[in-house]
């Protein structure tokens, strides 16, 4: 549905040698009906990337292919038409402050040539979907952030696009509202089959609704794949940092030193079914060891649970080795925790 081929974008600066290479040879493929997340720290080039997808920003080189058509080859008029098939929502909502909720959705429809009877139908339909049917006459400054984003989503959906781009749509919202908006995005993805490309700096967003994820750093995609794979086997330092942001399990070196004398400290990673089995409690029964959980967490990824435990295993070398081998047989990924210093 969305194919980006070798995209690069350079922002020229007045001073010759201070040009910014915001995108450096980025290639992505977002399949139809998928929710694809791009995560990265501030300045990684995420916004530049989504803005290239609808040519709000013209890439310096490379191709953007939406639904088989290359945007770079289009005339202004064709690009305008193509954009009507690509919805976009923003961190700042970007509603008209001088128009009420109804008009905020109706005006763009009118300007893209939708008939007035159809406009009325669509505004009602999509306000219902986002749950704001009773706010038609209200002005944006009387709405909460979450409600404003709902209006913006309804505005985007009302053009009935096949693709929805989201530039940090939940970054200005509190955690609860964020979850509600993410649920809404998931719902429209499932109900209408809209392909969603979203960018964020929160792992939570990726974990909750994305199928695929790409990690960006310095204008490049440094890792991409299924969300579950990135969680279980992060290959890159930055990816690891993002993953550990939801599993804050740093153990102080002094404690590691202390504990290691009595047995290894291990990280256990559970995926899918193995996440809800009492693997650890079985250990103490089957082997002559004692296990002690230092920290742990289970999160719900979009379609399977994923858990991570840090535990201390006490016992003699032979027994602990047997225990770890047993865990691995059960489909649990085991890695030893070492001191960082």
């Amino acid at each position: 549905m969305i194919e980006l081929r070798h995209l690069s974008k350079t922002f020229e600066s007045k001073k010759k040698n201070e040009d910014v290479l915001a995108l450096n040879d980025v290639s992505l493929h977002v399949k139809k009906g998928e929710i694809f997340g791009v995560i990265g720290y501030s300045g990684a080039g995420k916004s530049t990337l989504v803005r290239c997808v609808n040519y709000l920003e013209r890439p310096t080189s490379g191709e953007v292919i939406i639904d088989g058509a290359e945007l770079g080859e289009m005339s202004t008029e064709q690009l305008r038409q193509a954009r009507q098939n690509i919805g976009m929502i923003f961190q700042g909502f970007n509603l008209l402050t001088t128009a009420n909720v109804y008009d905020n959705i109706a005006i763009p429809l009118k300007l893209t040539g939708v008939s007035s009877s159809e406009i009325k139908k669509r505004v009602d339909k999509y306000l219902n979907i986002v749950g704001l049917a009773d706010k038609k006459k209200v002005f944006p400054n009387q709405l909460s952030g979450g409600q404003k984003q709902r209006v913006a989503i309804a505005r985007a959906l009302s053009h009935e696009p096949e693709v929805l781009l989201s530039d940090e749509a939940t970054s200005a919202l509190d955690p609860e509202t964020t979850d509600a908006i993410l649920d809404l995005l998931l719902k429209i993805n499932r109900e209408f089959g809209i392909t969603i490309l979203l960018i964020t700096h929160e792992m939570h967003v990726i974990q909750k609704i994305c199928d695929q994820v790409a990690v960006m750093e310095n204008g490049q995609v440094i890792e991409q794949g299924k969300v579950i794979d990135i969680y279980t086997q992060p290959k890159n330092k930055t990816t690891e940092k993002f993953v550990s942001s939801i599993f804050p399990s740093d153990i102080p070196d002094t404690i590691i030193d202390d504990l290691e004398k009595q047995g290894p400290i291990i990280n256990l990673t559970f995926v899918g079914h193995s996440a809800d089995q009492p693997a650890l409690s079985m250990l103490s029964k089957q082997f002559d060891i004692q296990s002690n959980i230092l920290s742990g967490n289970i999160v719900q990824l979009k379609d399977q649970p994923f858990g991570k435990l840090t535990a201390h295993i006490q016992g003699d070398k032979v027994e602990t080795d047997k225990a770890l081998a047993y865990l691995q047989e059960q489909g649990v990924k085991v890695s030893e925790v070492k001191r960082r210093g």
Binding site: L56, R80, G87, M88, F90, G92, L96, P108, L111, L165
Partner: peptide
């Protein structure tokens, strides 16, 4: 607000 103008550009409005 530049953002609003951008949102309208993104919707394919003249």
């Amino acid at each position: 607000d530049k953002g609003v103008i951008e949102a309208y550009e993104a919707m394919g409005i003249r």
